[in-house]
Nucleic acid binder design. Structure first.
Lengths: 161, 161
DNA sequence: TGCAAAATCATCCGAAAGGATGACGACAGC
DNA sequence: GCTGTCGTCATCCTTTCGGATGATTTTGCA
């Protein structure tokens, strides 16, 4: 922690040094532009540091590590069927509105499962290029630039489990 | 830490150089001093903010409180009582057993959100190389070869929302 | 204070992914 | 027949990822 103070001191010293240097030049060349700029720079630098401090001060939150211990209670009885056993049904409406074809969604699902393009190609008996094409189209329709982003979007939109 | 001073010195030198250079140009082109000063101000303000963030990041007193929260869960499985209302809490036990550090999980979370390494680096004020290192370690601990796979595993293991 | 873990950054290199574009066949609908 | 959509495949090129490895700095703890 003391190092920070030290660094602040060093930085301050550097500032003073540069100020003196530029001041000396001003005396010689008799220009006030640089002095003015240097002052503004120093002012804003300190302001920025102060701002940074203030910003991060709010970040000084007490981080609570919550350990969730799940306690099983008897089932509620009939009428409650486990949602996990039921196969996931993608939101076909949204799929249609986005214009995502069934094949594209199929490839997207495999992407979400963590498979590479080559693996997906092997699984579906198509070429890797085709997988890439489907991916590209699906990414475009989802407004995603990366496959991870596409997966995230797909889950948000209810297209992926 | 000396790096900061070094960077500051470099920036200062660059500023001096540009001062000298632009002084000549101003005389010739006769640009307004205010514009120039504003540019310098913005530059130093952002630099100061960055420096402030960097310095105070270590000051982030993390008072890590472990709170064991017992949650009643129907035997049918989790996620029936509006799981979205409760903020997600990663399975710290599993995280520990896998040896995944807090930082690695933090990076992993951003990966799951679909950000690229570069974007994550910018967000967390670290270099892209560091992000890659964290990723590689996290992937190794998760037994994943790709980031999509790591995300999938992370969700399965209750590490990611 | 000194040590071990964690975090940071870097470089090299190959593999994977992504963008752009063109093409071709199948099939449905008009 | 013509047209539009879909699925398929390809090439070229750029960007991004990932693996391996080494180094330095920071931090937490004994």
């Amino acid at each position: 922690m003391k190092r920070h103070v030290l660094i602040f001191g060093l930085v301050g010293g550097l500032l003073i040094a540069t100020l003196q240097y530029t001041e000396y030049r001003f005396v010689v060349i008799e220009h006030s532009v640089e002095l003015y700029s240097a002052l503004v720079a120093i002012l804003f630098a300190s302001f920025g540091i102060w701002l940074g401090l203030r910003i991060t001060r709010s970040r000084e939150t007490i981080r609570e590590t919550v350990v969730v211990r799940e306690v099983l209670v008897p089932a509620e009885g009939p009428g409650f069927f486990a949602p996990h056993t039921a196969p996931f049904a993608p939101d076909t409406v949204r799929q249609q509105t986005l214009g995502i074809t069934a094949r594209e969604l199929e490839i997207l699902t495999q992407v979400a499962r963590g498979f590479s393009n080559r693996e997906i190609a092997t699984q579906l008996f198509i070429s890797e290029n085709t997988v890439k094409t489907h991916c590209a189209r699906a990414f475009d329709k989802l407004g995603a630039a990366r496959r991870t982003q596409a997966v995230q979007r797909g889950k948000e939109l209810g297209l992926l489990p």
